[in-house]
C-alpha cells in the first residue's frame, strides 16, 4: 500500500497534472476568498466555503481520473494485481495519494485567512471600545474546513470508483463530475419537491444539507459519520469492481 501511495504521489509531480491541480486550486481559492470577504467587506466566510464545494466538483476529478484508468490503458494493472498486495491496499494507496494532494492544497489555502485575521486585528485596534465581536468566527472556519475535507474525501472516493470503470481518463473525469453534481443537486432539488417525506429523504442523503451544521460551527457528529461512510461505500465498491473483474 505504501509503495503504491508513494508512486501515485510521485506521479502527480512527474506529469503536469499535479502542478495544474495545485496551481488552479490555490489561484481559484485565493480569488474566491478575496471576492467573498475583502471585496464584499465582510468577515463571513460561509459563502467562500460553499463556493469551494462547487470548485471541488470541477477540480477533484482531475486528481482521480487517471488513478485506475491509466493503469488499465497501459496494462500496468496486471503488475499491481499480480503483486503480493491486497486489493484493499491497492485501492487505499491510490485513494490516499489523491486525498493527500487535496488535503495539502486545502491546508496551504489557509494562508488566505491570514490577511483576514490581520485586518480584523487592525480594526479592533482602531476601535477604542467594542460592544460586539469584530472578525472572522474561528469555530465556523474550523467546522467548514473539516466539512470540506470530508466532502472532498467522499468525492475522491467516488472519482476513484468511476476511474475503475473506464480506460479513458477524460470519460472518467466527466462522469465523475456528473456523479458529484448528482450528489449535490439532490439537496437543491429537494426544495422543489412538494411531498414532505420525499423531501426529508432527499435532505437526509444530500451532501450539502449536512454541510450547514458544521459550517455554522456546530460539531455535528452525524454529518461526520455520514461523510465518512459515503467515502467508505465508494471505496468498498471500488474494491468490489476489481474483485468482480477477476471472476468474469
Amino acid at each position: 500500500m505504501l509503495a503504491i501511495y508513494k508512486k501515485e504521489l510521485r506521479s502527480y509531480f512527474t506529469n503536469p497534472l499535479g502542478f495544474v491541480f495545485v496551481g488552479i486550486f490555490l489561484a481559484v481559492s485565493a480569488l474566491l476568498f478575496s471576492y467573498t470577504t475583502f471585496l464584499s467587506k465582510t468577515y463571513d466566510t460561509s459563502s467562500y466555503f460553499l463556493l469551494m464545494i462547487f470548485v471541488l466538483v470541477l477540480l477533484l476529478p482531475l486528481l482521480t481520473m487517471r488513478l485506475f484508468a491509466e493503469e488499465k490503458k497501459l496494462r500496468t494493472e496486471q503488475l499491481l494485481l499480480t503483486a503480493p498486495i491486497s486489493l484493499t491496499g491497492m485501492v487505499l494507496g491510490k485513494f490516499f495519494a489523491a486525498f493527500t494532494m487535496f488535503f495539502g492544497c486545502m491546508l496551504v489555502s489557509c494562508i488566505n485567512l491570514i490577511p483576514l485575521y490581520a485586518i480584523a486585528a487592525a480594526e479592533r485596534g482602531n476601535l477604542s471600545y467594542s460592544t460586539t465581536y469584530v472578525g472572522p468566527v474561528t469555530a465556523q472556519i474550523v467546522g467548514s474546513m473539516i466539512a470540506i475535507i470530508l466532502i472532498g474525501a467522499a468525492f475522491i472516493a467516488l472519482g476513484t470508483l468511476v476511474s475503475t470503470l473506464t480506460e479513458n481518463q477524460l470519460a472518467a473525469a466527466i462522469i465523475t463530475m456528473a456523479a458529484i453534481f448528482g450528489l449535490i443537486f439532490t439537496s437543491l432539488i429537494s426544495s422543489f419537491v412538494p411531498v414532505v417525506w420525499i423531501r426529508t429523504a432527499l435532505n437526509w442523503i444530500s451532501v450539502l444539507g449536512r454541510f450547514s451544521n458544521l459550517s455554522s460551527g456546530v460539531f455535528d457528529i452525524a454529518a461526520v459519520v455520514y461523510y465518512l461512510s459515503l467515502t467508505f461505500v465508494f471505496l468498498f465498491l471500488t474494491v468490489r469492481v476489481y474483485e468482480k473483474r477477476r471472476w468474469n
Binding site: L2, A3, I4, K6, K7, R10, S11, T14, N15, L74, R75, T76, E77, Q78, L79, L80, A83, P84, I85
Partner: peptide, 20 residues
C-alpha cells in the same frame, strides 16, 4: 507492465517496495 513516466531505476525501486 512498465510505467512510461518513470526511469528504469524508479520503476525497479517501486517494484522492490511493491513486492515487499
Amino acid at each position: 507492465p512498465v510505467y512510461l513516466d518513470m526511469t528504469v531505476d524508479e520503476y525497479l525501486k517501486f517494484n522492490y517496495e511493491l513486492k515487499g
